[in-house]
Nucleic acid binder design. Structure first.
Lengths: 228, 228
DNA sequence: GGCGGACGTGACGGAATCGTTGCAGCCATG
DNA sequence: CATGGCTGCAACGATTCCGTCACGTCCGCC
């Protein structure tokens, strides 16, 4: 899966440079040029990593990092900070606050990629292809197989990806828009109601083992995958 | 949610300047040009922050701040004071009285915004999506779930938002108008008595765990959410 | 104790949301 | 080219929810 990387940077030139490099490396850049906008994007796009410039207009990067660490939903969101060269004080405070790594400007493309890969590898339980299990339901991405209560459950590719996302993101509500972004991919033009149809197909596919009950409709908000 | 910011300033020119800047930053300015008017506006509008000029006709800003700190309902209302340049004495007394921050005139728009954001972030437990707990009742916005005494409590979207507001604003009376503004959103045209109906529905939804008793009717004033 | 206003409660029409179905288009496969 | 599986869409029906009203009840005040 293509990792989403939020780039928080107020200088357009650097922002574009980084975005280009990320795209070439098969990653999906999400852009923000202020801390406020960053918070919005995080809510909307659910990035896997944040590249955070330390010097921002208004709210500083330090404060944003602190806030992300304070929120339960973003507590484990990896942060790589971009600091001016030799700004040792920022570096220290940054690591204290909870940044996972730092890069001093100017930096090379290779170095950036190396650190991104390292951080993503360190904490990315959800992007892996490991088999997932949840209360008697088992999904194996490598074998493309789903089993529940010993029975093999057949479904289409889209239902499979949808279930995979749900099983790695349980106990939380996702809107139709978020599901489209996460399961179908960004920038697709698909009717939101189509999600409903695939939810129905997934429910039908899970019914032989009774696990269809794990898919909860949250009226007005979206869907949640959880036991009971 | 759009934060409301009360601007207490007697000079029309400065007042307008600040109001304009706040609007551009996505905030909702509420205006008052005297301490007396400020008290009224606070009661009506429930601002999230007060920008307070230190030099006011009649009752001074200092006295207003002291009064706000003395009242239980406004004890935790953030205050940023505006002082003349170099007026160190005012600065000290202001911080002693309980102002959260200060800005010396003349100030830049950026600085103003930075301090506003900082103060709002410091005390804004209500804007987050973190789970809330109150005497055995638990509400999780991310999972969109309410549990009391181990039982899951089902309710409609409006009841959920209403309960969320109550659980983040306990121990205080809110009028029907205030509840409409805060839970339904500003500028809605809804009968005040409709609040009663949703209060009833929320009580019914909470009854399985007995937490309906937390909703108190304050005859002639509104409702309060609190234990006993 | 009576009176007036405020509140609780049940019901109802309309609107919004969601489940379900059938279908047409697409692609791969043989 | 025929077939079959899969996808996205539109449409319909069912359900839930919302805001309002009417009526009954309760409370405080004189």
């Amino acid at each position: 899966m293509q990792p989403r990387i939020l780039v928080v940077e107020d200088e357009p030139a650097i922002q574009e440079l980084i975005a280009l490099n990320l795209e070439q490396a098969g990653q999906l850049p999400v852009l923000a040029d202020s801390a406020e906008q960053a918070l919005e994007r995080i809510q909307e796009e659910l990035p896997d990593l944040v590249l955070l410039d330390w010097m921002l207009p208004g709210q500083s990067g330090l404060e944003l990092a602190r806030r992300l660490r304070g929120d339960a939903r973003t507590k484990r969101l990896p942060i790589i900070m971009l600091t001016a060269r030799g700004d040792e004080e920022d570096k220290l405070r940054g690591l204290e606050t909870g940044a996972d790594d730092y890069i001093t400007k100017p930096f090379s493309v290779k170095e950036l990629q190396a650190r991104i890969k390292a951080v993503l590898r360190r904490r990315a339980p959800e992007i892996t292809d490991d088999a997932v299990e949840y209360h008697g339901l088992r999904l194996d991405p490598a074998a493309h197989r789903v089993t529940g209560k010993g029975k093999e459950l057949a479904m289409g590719p889209t239902e499979f990806r949808l279930l995979h996302f749900f099983m790695t993101h349980t106990e939380r509500v996702y809107s139709r828009t978020q599901l489209l972004d996460q399961v179908w991919g960004d920038h697709v033009f698909i009717e939101e109601r189509t999600v409903d149809v695939h939810i129905r197909r997934l429910r039908a596919a899970l019914s032989p083992s009774g696990h269809e009950a794990f898919i909860h409709t949250i009226r007005g908000s979206g869907y949640r995958f959880s036991r009971a």
